[in-house]
Simulated scan of single mutants.
Amino acid sequence: MTVTVVKTATATKTATNTSDGNSAKTAARKAAAKKRTKKHAAKRKISRTSLQRAKARRAVKTAEKQIGDPYRYGATGPGAFDCSGLVQYAWRKAGVRLPRTTWSIRGAVRTKVSWGHFEPGDLIFTSGGGHVGMYVGHGKMIHAPHSGTRVRIDKLDAYRKSTFVGAVRPGV
Rank of each mutant, 00 (worst) to 15 (best):
Y159F: 09
A24M: 13
G130I: 02
H131A: 02
K45G: 09
T26V: 13
N22E: 14
R53F: 06
D82W: 03
R44D: 11
K112Q: 10
L51G: 10
K25I: 07
T111I: 08
D69V: 08
S47F: 10
V109C: 03
Q66Y: 08
T126H: 00
G77D: 04
G148M: 06
Y159Q: 11
T102A: 05
A42D: 12
H143S: 11
V109R: 05
V96A: 02
T8L: 05
A31T: 09
S127Q: 12
G74R: 03
T111M: 09
T18Q: 14
A80I: 04
A54R: 13
G133C: 04
T16Y: 15
T102R: 07
P145Y: 02
W115S: 08
V168L: 05
T2Q: 14
D20K: 15
G148K: 08
Y135V: 03
K65S: 14
Q52E: 07
M134T: 00
G79A: 03
Q52S: 11
S162V: 05
F118P: 04
A9C: 11
A56D: 05
M134A: 01
S114Q: 13
R48H: 12
G129W: 02
A75E: 04
S47P: 02
V6E: 15
K161D: 03
W115P: 02
V113W: 04
P170W: 03
R29N: 15
T14N: 15
G21M: 13
S104F: 04
A54I: 09
H143I: 06
Q66L: 05
G85P: 03
C83G: 03
K45M: 12
S162T: 06
R36I: 08
W115K: 10
S47N: 10
G68V: 00
G95P: 06
T62P: 04
R100E: 00
A41C: 12
T37M: 14
M1I: 14
D69Y: 08
P170I: 05
R152C: 10
T26I: 13
R53N: 12
S114Y: 10
T8G: 09
A33G: 11
A75S: 07
I105G: 00
K155A: 11
V151I: 08
Q52M: 09
V3D: 14
T163N: 07
M141H: 08
T8N: 11
F118A: 05
E119G: 06
K25E: 09
E119C: 07
T16S: 15
V168C: 06
L123A: 04
W103I: 06
T149R: 14
T8Q: 09
R150A: 07
R29D: 15
R72G: 04
A94E: 03
K65H: 14
V165L: 08
A94F: 00
K34S: 12
V132M: 00
D20F: 11
V168Q: 06
M141W: 11
N22A: 15
A108N: 06
N22C: 12
K161T: 04
R92I: 00
A108W: 00
S23K: 15
S47C: 07
L123T: 03
T62M: 05
K38H: 13
V60D: 05
T18I: 14
F125I: 00
R57N: 14
C83W: 06
K161Q: 12
A33E: 13
W91E: 00
V3K: 07
T62E: 03
V109M: 04
P170N: 07
T16H: 13
R152A: 11
K39A: 12
